[in-house]
Amino acid sequence: MKSGALFLNRLGEILLFLSEVLKTLWKRPCKLELVLEQVWHVTIQSFPTTAMAGFFVGGIMTVQFAMLVSEFGASAYLGGLATSATIREIGPMLIAFMLSGKVGAFTSAELGTMKVTEQIDAIRCLGADPIQEIILPRFLGIIISSFFLLTGGLMLSVIGGSTLGILFAGINPQEYVRHIPTILGFPSLLSGLVKCMSYALVLATICTFMGYFTTGGAKGVGRSVVSTSVLTMVTIVVFDWGTSFLGQLLMAWFAVG
């Protein structure tokens, strides 16, 4: 009962924080160069990790599907099945997990340190709005770069799937590629992109919130970093279910239409 109340309380705080950030974006947007600086930093820092994760996620899916489809004599569909499953489901989620451990943890630690060393109070005393000055550039920077990192990671997962499949599972490259457009339709691509966007929003909101409301010195910063990773991953799984469910409903609606 108590933990339920705590959960609802935290959810309310996060939503209020998000509304404050969006209100600031609407009324007093931050400087574009601050956002671009964040986009550059996040992308440069995280591209190797997400690229590698994407490449091997694609490889894993291909190897797993290869074993199954060969049993049914449907090897021709391997490329389509593995790519579709990666782009619609596993790819965005696993890459987002990687980003939560890297970008999310880094941002909440950075903001948390600023909070416990009174830099955020100093910003207020010097006549600036900390949401506009430090939260908004990070929030937007993380959303933009995470979206590109996730979609870039997904592209690499397709390359990884085909390359590792060809090298280690003896798959015919032409056969692998031939049925990708048959199975991976526009709805699958759209589903993957919507997931990337929603995970980027989750990641940016949670890490900036946890960092901004850090209390309790170095220990508090540590707590914020751990909470950011755990909360982001749990929320991403919940959002994954939500977007999948919504996707099914939309596809059914389009099919009927």
């Binding site: 060393t117 009174e118 830099q119 109070d121 100093a122 910003i123 207020r124 005393c125 010097l126 006549g127 709005d129």
Partner: peptide, 22 residues
Amino acid sequence: TEQQFLPVRKKCGMVFQHPALF
């Protein structure tokens, strides 16, 4: 409000326990 405090903060400068430099 936060907005009303701006002129107050202009005339009341605060030096923090930590240097709090950016």
